[in-house]
Structure formats: structure tokens, C-alpha cells
């Protein structure tokens, strides 16, 4: 938990000091990549709670999702198919699903503790 928060803080700090300014035309790709990243993290939390977590799957999924989502969005823009929406839809839906499952598992754990 501490490592995750530290990592996030480090990332935010680095983001502020690295003078990289994304051209505004690439904002949509960046947002898709961010969405894919968040989806992977939620997926990881869920897998952990279900005791199915595998760091190799998690890491490959994290980078794979980001790359594929960004590439698909870019490719879609090139050929005029809004694949962008497909990515938003997929990742968005899955994020909510994962969150629902996480919530259920945590509630169950609290309940068990309370009943004991």
C-alpha cells in the first residue's frame, strides 16, 4: 500500500518536473492510455482479492492494454473508424464491473469479521 502511494507521489512529482508538453492533438490517445492503465490496476486489485493475482499477467496486461488501446485509437483516427469509443466502452464497463466485484468481496470480508 505504501509502495503504491509512494509510486503515485513520485509519478506526480516527476510529471511536474519533466518538461514534456503533449501536443493537444494527442490528448485523446493519452486519455485512452490512462483509462487502460486504471483498468489494469482495478483488474489487479480484483485478482488479488480473489487470490488469483499473477504479477506477470498484471504487468504484461498493463503495458499491453496501454499500447493496444493507444494504437487502436490512433489507427481508428487514421482510417476513420472511431475505435476510440470501443476502448472507452470496454475499459469503462470493465472498471465498473471490477469495482462492483471488489466492493462485494470487501463487504463480505467485513461481514465475516463482524460475525466472528
Amino acid at each position: 500500500m505504501i509502495l503504491a502511494i509512494l509510486g503515485l507521489a513520485l509519478g506526480v512529482f516527476l510529471g511536474f518536473i519533466i518538461p514534456v508538453d503533449l501536443p493537444s492533438s494527442y490528448t485523446s490517445y493519452m486519455s485512452i492510455a490512462l483509462l487502460a492503465a486504471l483498468d489494469s490496476v482495478f483488474g489487479g486489485v480484483r485478482a488479488e482479492l480473489e487470490n488469483k493475482f499473477d504479477s506477470h499477467i498484471f504487468i504484461s496486461g498493463f503495458f499491453g492494454n496501454i499500447i493496444i488501446a493507444t494504437f487502436l485509437a490512433y489507427f481508428g483516427d487514421r482510417v476513420g473508424i472511431p475505435l476510440y469509443y470501443a476502448a472507452i466502452f470496454t475499459f469503462g464497463t470493465r472498471m465498473f464491473q471490477n469495482f462492483a466485484i471488489i466492493r462485494r468481496i470487501i463487504l463480505k470480508k467485513i461481514e465475516e469479521k463482524y460475525n466472528r
Binding site: A4, L6, L8, G15, L22, A37, A47, I59
Partner: peptide
């Protein structure tokens, strides 16, 4: 899940992306 160095690294990437996007 949350105790590995890799996780810290990945969260750092997410942080950078968040800030970039925000800026």
C-alpha cells in the same frame, strides 16, 4: 499485490500520465 517494487513503478507511470494529461 501492493507490496512489490513493480507496483510502485507502475503507479509512478500512472502518476506521470495523470499529471501530463491534466497539464
Amino acid at each position: 499485490f501492493l507490496g512489490r517494487p513493480v507496483i510502485g513503478f507502475i503507479f509512478a507511470i500512472i502518476g506521470i500520465m495523470l499529471v501530463m494529461q491534466g497539464q
